[in-house]
Design a protein around this nucleic acid. Sequence first.
DNA 1: TTCTCATTTTCCTAAATGAGAATATGAATC
DNA 2: GATTCATATTCTCATTTAGGAAAATGAGAA
Lengths: 129, 129
Amino acid sequence: MFTLPTIAHALSDTTRLRLLIACLDKERCVCQLVELIDLSNASISKHLSTLKAAGLLESRREGRWVHYRANPNPDSIIADAYALVRSHAMEDDQIQADQIKLTEIDCIDPTELAKKQRTASCCTTNDCC
Amino acid sequence: MFTLPTIAHALSDTTRLRLLIACLDKERCVCQLVELIDLSNASISKHLSTLKAAGLLESRREGRWVHYRANPNPDSIIADAYALVRSHAMEDDQIQADQIKLTEIDCIDPTELAKKQRTASCCTTNDCC
DNA sequence: TTCTCATTTTCCTAAATGAGAATATGAATC
DNA sequence: GATTCATATTCTCATTTAGGAAAATGAGAA
């Protein structure tokens, strides 16, 4: 089904690795992941679809929101990929910072996140508008 | 030491995966690997250096020949990568064909291989010269 | 139906990557 | 020392990829 080169390619990008880890133990909606990672929603969406195509994430639509999570009943190769990630990526500084930020994001109503992202679309770095 | 994204990137290319598997259980010189895979020695050499930089292969020079092999005392992350490869890449058709071809290559004197590659440098596909 | 909105897709650009030809390197042999 | 030879590196070109802006999609709300 899923091949090692495809899975390895999905894991070879640090942004994708961060996204996967963010969804390993908890379902996340796209706006939460955009909040975690400082990239456009278009980029996040493309990375998520790469992870999904590799079999590392699955998605579920709920109204206007789409939630991503790790596969709870993975193939053997996917399970081994998860194990590799859990064993050898969690001690990374960026990943640990992400874990902290995710606990903060969990405290915010996703509707608030989405609204913030909507209004900040014209200027992401400075708060001009 | 070696990071998951770097290792995953090395494994994400099928040519590199074939090279790694060819060197998993047996040391191979570059001319044997060029014989296995229909690419220029420049390309093979670059892929090998990528694998080496990721910690997946090590090299040993013996006179004019350079031999590559998997690390016999790997870090935990490298060992897990080897295990992933052994568990989930060996059933691939191309890999199995490689295994057969490698047994044939093992029967040929490397000096013969090198000579053949030297003379065939101008036309790899057809035997015009 | 029309509007709003979260997400995805399309389109484009800039940077990265894979490939081979030509050249360089490092080591044996003459 | 000059030459030969196995491999590595450099250079260039074609293809792929990451990124954002803008348009499209799909679903609830008015």
